[in-house]
C-alpha cells in the first residue's frame, strides 16, 4: 500500500500562470466595438439628434480607431475626416491618415494650419518654444474641428485614450475638448488591440506613437517608459494595488515612479477650470446635474 507521504509527493501542482492584475488589460474587442458603436449612436443620434461626425485624422492609431468606429456608427458618408498639417508635421502623418480615410471611404479634407499658427507666432511671438507652438497647433486644430462641425451639422469626436489622459499627455482644452469620446476609458494597449480587430492598416498600427508636435518626438521617448509596461503598471495602480505589490510583480521602482509622477502631477488636466466657490449653489459643487439631464 502506498504511504500517505508518497501519495502527497505524487500530487500534481498547478500554479497560477498570470500576475495579479494581468486581466485588467483584457478586452473582448468584438463586445467593445459593439458597445462603442452603440455609444456613438446613442449619444449623437438619440440624445443630440446629430447624425454626422467630424474627426481629426492624424495618421496615428487612436484617430484611425475613432474614424472606424464612427464609420460603423453613422455610415462612411456621414463621417468627415480632417487632416490638419503644420509645416513641421511629418509627411508620413498625412499619408498614413489618407490610408485610413481611403480604406473607410469617409470624406477627406486637408486644412493647412501653418498660416493660422504662424500668423500669430511670426507677428507676435517669434521666439515661441517648440512646445508652445505644439500647443498652439493642437488648439488651432480643435478650433477648426468645432467650426467644421458647426458648418456640417456634425459633432466633433474625441480621440484621446486613457493612458494619455492619465499621464496628462495632451493639450488642455484642445485634444480633450470634443463633447464625445469613445476611447477615453481604454488604455493605449487596448486601443492597439481594437485597431487590429477593426482592420486598421498595419502601417498605422505598427508606427511609433507620436504627437507629431515637434520633429523626432515620440510618446514613449517623452515618457521614458514603453506603453506596454506603463499600462500594466497604470492599470494596477488604478485598481488599487499598492506600489509594493506592483514592485513584487517585477516592475522596477523607476518605472513605477514615472507612472506615479505622470498621474499625480496632472489631476488638474482631467478637470474643468477651478472656479471660486462663493455660494451654496456653486455649479457642479452644490448644483449637481448630470451632463445629459
Amino acid at each position: 500500500m502506498i504511504s500517505p507521504e508518497a501519495r502527497v509527493d505524487r500530487l500534481p501542482t498547478i500554479r497560477s500562470a498570470r500576475l495579479p492584475g494581468d486581466e485588467l488589460l483584457d478586452i473582448d474587442c468584438e463586445l467593445a466595438v459593439r458597445f462603442l458603436t452603440a455609444f456613438l449612436k446613442f449619444e449623437c443620434t438619440r440624445r443630440r439628434n446629430v447624425l454626422k461626425a467630424v474627426v481629426g485624422v492624424s495618421g496615428g492609431v487612436d484617430s484611425a480607431v475613432v474614424a472606424t468606429l464612427c464609420s460603423k456608427a453613422f455610415g462612411p458618408e456621414n463621417v468627415f475626416a480632417f487632416r490638419m498639417p503644420y509645416k513641421w508635421s511629418s509627411e508620413d502623418s498625412l499619408t498614413d491618415a489618407k490610408l485610413v480615410i481611403n480604406q473607410l471611404g469617409i470624406h477627406d479634407r486637408v486644412i493647412e494650419i501653418t498660416s493660422m499658427v504662424d500668423g500669430y507666432v511670426q507677428a507676435n511671438e517669434p521666439d515661441a518654444s517648440p512646445n508652445r507652438i505644439g500647443n498652439l497647433c493642437a488648439r488651432c486644430r480643435t478650433t477648426i474641428l468645432f467650426d467644421q462641425s458647426a458648418k456640417l451639422g456634425a459633432l466633433p469626436i474625441g480621440t484621446g485614450n486613457k493612458t494619455e489622459r492619465m499621464f496628462g499627455y495632451f493639450t488642455w482644452h484642445a485634444d480633450d475638448a470634443p463633447p464625445i469620446n469613445p476611447l477615453g476609458d481604454l488604455y493605449k494597449t487596448q486601443v492597439w488591440k481594437l485597431a487590429e480587430h477593426l482592420g486598421v492598416p498595419e502601417k498605422v498600427r505598427s508606427k511609433i506613437p507620436t504627437a507629431d508636435l515637434v520633429k523626432g518626438q515620440s510618446d514613449e521617448g517623452d515618457f521614458g517608459i514603453r506603453y506596454a509596461k506603463a499600462d500594466q503598471i497604470l492599470s494596477r495602480m488604478l485598481a488599487g494595488f499598492s506600489e509594493d505589490a506592483i514592485l513584487r510583480m517585477g516592475f522596477t521602482s523607476e518605472e513605477i515612479a514615472i507612472v506615479r509622477h505622470r498621474v499625480a502631477s496632472t489631476h488638474w488636466k482631467r478637470h474643468l477650470p477651478t472656479v471660486a466657490l462663493l455660494s451654496s449653489t456653486a455649479i457642479n459643487e452644490f448644483y449637481l446635474r448630470p451632463v445629459d439631464y
Partner: peptide, 8 residues
Amino acid sequence: VGFEGGKG
C-alpha cells in the same frame, strides 16, 4: 439599456 453620460 441605453447610455447616460457615457455609462452604457
